[in-house]
């Protein structure tokens, strides 16, 4: 009985401690003031307690973001652990908000907390979901845009976990390129 009790109390620890952030676009305030840390967790149980408690991404109002980042990394390019990195970007069509968005976002979160990128999981910084009228976006952010082997491995595994077919390609953009883009098109560094 004691063993059963002990087992029921054991929590399943994650490799990393993660922080969930929420961003709501209120024009009259500074950008940083619109970004809020929701909470941190480091066990499977606490992840589900949080996930089942918060509003699904598809129900957020336009202009809002969720971000999940390793503790100590802020969800912005400027963070020292993001600035040399980039992101694998998934752009969704408008109608996919009610069909695919929540599934893709949950799969993205599970890839992160489950450390599903094998030896390259430590290259992952976090993930962001942007709810936008012109089309929602989900991205996994990695640490070093120049680490081609790590970045392409993460992209391939990510695409597989999302169940995207071979014909569908996803692109990786370095934050430095996104930050300084001259047109609406950002240079794509890798494709899988």
């Amino acid at each position: 009985q004691q063993l059963a009790l002990a087992q029921s109390l054991v929590k399943y620890p994650l490799q990393n401690r993660w922080a969930l952030w929420f961003f709501k676009n209120e024009k009259n305030r500074l950008w940083q003031a619109n970004l809020r840390l929701v909470t941190k967790f480091s066990t499977v149980e606490d992840f589900w307690a949080l996930y089942d408690h918060i509003k699904p991404a598809s129900k957020l109002s336009c202009g809002c973001d969720y971000s999940l980042f390793k503790d100590g990394i802020e969800p912005m390019w400027e963070d020292s652990q993001n600035m040399r990195g980039g992101r694998w970007l998934i752009t969704l069509a408008k109608q996919q908000r009610h069909t695919k968005l929540d599934c893709f976002w949950l799969d993205t979160l599970l890839c992160l907390i489950g450390e599903m990128f094998d030896d390259y999981s430590n290259e992952v910084c976090g993930a962001v979901i942007n709810i936008r009228a012109k089309g929602d976006k989900i991205a996994i952010w990695t640490r070093e845009a120049e680490h081609q082997e790590a970045v392409t491995h993460i992209g391939r595994v990510y695409k597989e976990h999302l169940g995207l077919s071979q014909e569908v390609t996803i692109g990786y953009q370095a934050h430095a390129d996104t930050a300084t883009k001259s047109s609406s098109l950002t240079k794509t560094k890798f494709v899988v």
């Binding site: 399943y12 620890p13 994650l14 490799q15 499977v44 149980e45 589900w48 307690a49 996930y51 089942d52 799969d107 599970l110 907390i113 489950g114 450390e115 599903m116 999981s121 976990h161």
Partner: peptide
């Protein structure tokens, strides 16, 4: 040793956790 969990375990956990 790295703490890794696969998708099935994590999803299964949500089900068990929700039914507790």
């Amino acid at each position: 040793e790295k703490k890794r969990y696969d998708r099935e375990f994590l999803l299964g956990f949500q089900f068990i956790f929700a039914s507790m």
